Simulated scan of single mutants.
Amino acid sequence: MADLSTISLQPEEIVSFLKKNLQFREVYQKILYQRVINQATAERGITVTPEEIQAEADQLRLEKRLEKASDTLAWLAEQMITPDQWEEGIRDRLLSKKLSESLFAKEVEKSFAQNRISFERVLLYQIVVEDGKVAQELLYQIEEKEISFYEAAKFYDIDENRRQNCGCEGEIDRYQLKPDIVAAVFSGQLGEVVGPLKTEQGYHLLMVEKFIPAELTSQRYQELLDGMFQQWLVAELNYMLHSQAS
Rank of each mutant, 00 (worst) to 15 (best):
L4P: 01
L4D: 03
T6Y: 05
S8M: 09
S8R: 07
S16Y: 07
S16L: 08
L18F: 00
F24Q: 00
R25K: 11
Q34M: 12
I37V: 02
Q39I: 15
A40V: 03
A40E: 02
T41Q: 00
A42S: 06
E43K: 15
R44H: 10
P50S: 12
E51H: 07
A55T: 15
A57R: 10
D58R: 06
R65T: 11
S70C: 08
S70D: 15
S70G: 13
A74K: 12
Q79P: 01
M80Q: 13
T82W: 05
P83W: 09
D84N: 09
E87Y: 04
E87C: 06
L95Y: 01
S96F: 06
S96I: 02
L99R: 07
S100Q: 12
S100T: 12
F104W: 04
F112E: 08
A113R: 11
E120S: 02
V122I: 08
L124H: 01
Q126T: 01
Q126N: 11
V128A: 08
D131E: 11
Q136F: 02
E137P: 04
Y140E: 02
I142N: 00
E143L: 14
A153N: 01
K154Y: 12
Y156S: 14
I158Q: 14
E160K: 10
G167M: 04
G167Y: 02
C168F: 14
E169K: 15
I172T: 09
L177R: 14
A183E: 15
A184T: 07
A184S: 10
V185S: 04
E192V: 04
V193Q: 10
L197K: 08
K198P: 07
G202T: 11
L205R: 09
L206K: 05
M207S: 06
V208A: 13
I212A: 02
I212D: 04
R220S: 01
Q222E: 15
E223D: 04
L225S: 09
G227L: 13
Q230S: 10
Q230L: 12
V234P: 05
Y239R: 15
S243L: 10
A245D: 13
S246M: 13
